[in-house]
Design a protein around this nucleic acid. Structure first.
Length: 479
RNA sequence: GCCCGCUUGGUGUAGAGGUUAUCAUGCAGGAUUGUCAUUCCUGCGACCCGGGUUCAAUUCCCGGAGUGGGCGCCA
């Protein structure tokens, strides 16, 4: 059966000296006591410089932290001091100097003395690249910046501490998700993004030219990961882009997004719901427990405080997640006064009604077959309250928002072909896929999870675009 | 695709048919300071585009462009 192994945390990251620095700024702080009086070379962005007289303080920032560099005309020379004093914010500078204990700040009586901090007493400076002024957006300014301005100048936006922290958290989410699936026996795969035909039907695809032939950007790895099941790979996952040419314009949609997909043999919908909730639980738990992740959350909260926004809190969801079967969801929506009939999709307004009682993760299993794509499995005789055929398809929501859709797949080739015809798709066009079911295939199930949507829930982002480095939406595809 | 907003210095905002167009942040200069979100002084910098109404439009109307939100659909 399933073995979920306990993994010890990865070893501490080591920063090897490079051509431009002997130490990171983070190391100056963490190893400061041992580095006192040693000569070091550091490099980074100049966040601020203070002091116009015979002394000057520079706040220098690199990927590991911030350290103050202290300049005195006696040590560095009047000319270099002047260069630094006239330097623009966000220029990249390289300093050589000695590590020394920073003078402790004046502390009011009764308040605790802060831990010792370290600085670099500079003896020389190299201007690597001077930043043009004014900056299109202030990296350390407390004024709000609109998302559009941020995305137009994303490279500068990324220098802001809370934005940087968000992308580091994104890396963590992928790392912990990947880590969990590997412990459950899944192997990482890649499927093609250039395809000859629609993989699911329904959605609009981006057309492209493949040499002399029209082709498309793939909307989902769905059919290919199923072929992996027919190929006996048994448990696969993929983290990759999906492209959809839908002209939507909302806080939760992108035209290129990263889909976290799995497919699992000898399994039904209930089995893969288990994989999903265990994986999400692992991600949340790891973020809540790991020191580095907590530091990232704290950075985001420090910014939120300046914007008078509520702090985000990583609440580890309890296992198992609640299950709200489609038929029950319809009944409850009706009881709450929502307008819906059995067989309808659950729209945003009605999702809000469900979210009143289920504000976090919950599964919505057993959708009507009529609402699900052709590849979803059904068991004859599993019928809803109106005697209509139910499917083995499910959604995972977080409050009002859909995070995942998944289900057991149809492995019976005759039923598959019927389904295609019933949904007005041509089995001939899907021959590459149907062929995979002709020579024996295990029953299988899987799901696709929107990475950006998960990030929104974890980091409190109000718009998925915030969680993507360079988002592609209806109007934006540059930078 | 449909519905509703918004557009003022680099950034984010206040505001009014006639103003010296507000404030913060920023930028430049100066004073002070081994600073710690320093403080203080001085200065710089803006009404999206086109047309209309009006003695007068950045303000009102129409159109355009850009942008934000909601919906459908989805991850």
């Amino acid at each position: 059966m399933l073995h979920v192994l306990h993994r010890s945390p990865p070893p501490m990251t080591t920063w090897v000296p490079t051509a431009y620095r002997t130490h990171t700024l983070g190391e100056i702080q963490t190893l400061g006591a041992d580095l006192i009086d040693q000569i070091v070379t550091v490099a980074g962005f100049m966040e601020a410089n203070r002091g116009k007289g015979a002394i000057c303080f520079v706040d220098l920032r690199d990927g590991t932290g911030t350290t103050q560099v202290f300049l005195k005309a006696d040590n560095i020379g009047a000319e270099s001091l002047d260069v630094v004093q006239r330097m623009t914010r966000e220029s990249t500078l390289q300093f050589t100097g000695t590590v020394s204990l920073k003078r402790p700040p004046k502390v009011k009586e009764g308040e605790p003395t802060p831990p010792p901090a370290y600085e670099v007493l500079a003896t020389s400076v190299e201007v690597i690249a001077r930043a043009e002024a004014p900056l299109p957006l202030g990296v350390t300014d407390t004024v709000n910046v609109e998302l559009d301005t941020r995305l137009d100048n994303r490279f500068l936006d990324l220098r802001r501490a809370h934005v940087n922290a968000m992308f580091r958290l994104r890396g963590k989410v992928l790392q912990f998700g990947r880590q969990h699936l590997i412990t459950e026996g899944f192997i990482e795969t890649h499927t093609p993004k250039i395809v000859a035909t629609a993989t699911e039907g329904g959605t609009d695809l981006f057309p492209m030219q493949y040499f002399e032939t029209p082709a498309y950007l793939n909307q989902s790895p769905q059919l290919f990961k199923q072929l992996c099941m027919s190929g006996g790979l048994e448990r696969v996952f993929e983290i990759g882009p999906a492209f959809r040419a839908e002209k939507h314009d909302t806080y939760r949609h992108l035209n290129e997004f990263i889909s976290f997909d799995i497919e699992c043999s000898w399994a039904n919908d209930d089995d893969v719901m288990g994989v999903l909730e265990r994986m999400l639980h692992h991600i949340w738990k790891s973020i809540a427990e790991e020191e580095e992740s907590q530091g990232l959350i704290a950075t985001i909260n420090a910014y939120r405080a300046t914007q008078e926004e509520e702090a985000i809190e990583v609440v580890v969801p309890e296992l198992p997640f609640p299950r709200m079967e489609y038929c029950d969801a319809i009944r409850i929506i009706k009881e709450k006064g929502g307008t819906i009939e059995w067989g309808d999709d659950i729209d945003a307004e009605n999702s809000d009604l469900l979210a009143e009682d289920l504000p976090q993760f919950y599964f919505l299993p057993r959708w009507p077959m009529s609402l699900k794509p052709f590849y979803i499995h059904h068991v004859e005789g599993e019928i809803g309250s109106t005697d209509q055929q139910l499917s083995r398809g499910f959604d995972l929501n977080f409050g009002r928002d859909e995070m995942t859709s998944g289900g057991q797949r149809e492995h019976r080739i005759d039923v598959l072909i019927d389904n295609l015809k019933n949904m007005e798709l041509d089995p001939e066009e899907f021959e590459f896929y149907v062929a995979g079911f002709r020579h024996g295939v295990p029953p299988h199930a899987g799901w696709g999870l929107g990475v950006e949507r998960i990030l929104m829930k974890l980091t409190g982002a109000k718009n998925v675009r915030e969680t993507v480095l360079f988002p592609r939406d209806r109007k934006r595809f540059c930078p």
